[in-house]
């Protein structure tokens, strides 16, 4: 049976690669240190595959049909998508996929009444590209990307994501293979991409949310940090934290916050988190 070996979360803002040096020096240092620490923890966990949960950002699907979840099932993932390379200031990368595990998620999910759309060829913007740039720079860890709708109404609730995470954990643990699996949530914290508060970061919300993660009481977090609360802290962007509540279901106990920066220059509350204990 497969085994979950690591659970982490980090911001994926395009500024982390596209205009990294426009933030204060100490933010740059904190971010690099935290992502270096994450990379080290990943190496220690020796995963055979990383499953990444991220907002689809209206990239892979047109607005008339935005699945709640989409799995990339191809043998290789190539990014960034056309036109995004310049924005992210990133060269093309290639990361092997894990079609067997990806297809299992789609089919076993259906048996458990969860709808996962899938794509054999998936496009990648900041959501997957930025975290992979820092955490999987040589593409040595095979990737199963799972994109989520975090931005087109109706945005699914954090509770819903947590429930899906719980089922996914059971499914992945039941996968008939020896794989060691890392799970990574990307996105958040507070930001309002393209909205009137495009330049705003809600530091108070971010610190409150991270404190809830540090307390490690999942039910309290889900009760207090509603979708409405996320939307109030930055509409259409902060709700990427539902990817974090999905991964929360793979963990137990307090999260360890490696860094937090209210980075106006990157137009996003910026944080890096690992969970030392797994569910």
């Amino acid at each position: 049976m497969a085994q979950i070996v690591a659970a982490m979360a980090m911001t994926h803002s395009p500024g982390l690669t596209g205009w990294f040096d426009r933030a204060p020096k100490d933010y740059q240092e904190q971010a690099l240190r935290a992502m270096g620490e994450m990379r080290e923890r990943v190496a220690q966990a020796r995963p055979d595959v990383v499953v990444v949960f991220s907002n689809d950002h209206l990239l892979n699907w047109p607005i008339n049909n935005t699945p709640e979840y989409t799995v990339g099932i191809g043998p290789e993932h190539v990014g960034p998508a056309e036109w995004y390379d310049e924005w992210l200031d990133m060269k093309q990368y290639r990361i092997p996929g894990h079609p067997a595990l990806a297809r299992y998620i789609v089919n076993e999910g259906a048996r458990r009444r969860l709808a996962f759309a899938y794509l054999r060829e998936m496009q990648f913007d900041d959501g997957v590209s930025v975290p992979m740039h820092y955490l999987n720079p040589t593409g040595s860890i095979p990737l199963v990307p799972v994109t989520m709708n975090c931005t087109v109404p109706p945005i699914p609730t954090p509770e819903r994501a947590y429930q899906v995470g719980t089922t996914l954990r059971e499914m992945l643990e039941a996968y008939p293979g020896p794989e060691r699996i890392a799970v990574l949530a990307t996105g958040g914290l507070s930001h309002e991409p393209g909205g009137p508060r495009y330049f705003w970061v809600d530091e108070e919300f971010d610190l409150w949310f991270l404190d809830l993660l540090k307390r490690g009481d999942h039910q309290a977090l889900l009760r207090e940090c509603t979708l409405e609360r996320m939307e109030a802290a930055g509409s259409g962007g902060t709700a990427e934290l539902i990817a974090w509540t999905l991964v929360l279901a793979f963990t137990r106990g307090p999260a360890e916050v490696l860094a937090y920066m209210p980075a106006l220059a990157w137009r996003s509350g910026t944080g890096m988190v690992v969970w030392p204990q797994l569910a």
């Binding site: 607005i63 309002e192 909205g195 508060r197 930055g234 509409s235 259409g236």
Partner: peptide
């Protein structure tokens, strides 16, 4: 809800 709810999905 937030600004994103002003979106017209059929536009």
């Amino acid at each position: 809800m937030g600004n994103v709810d002003r979106c017209d999905k059929t536009l």
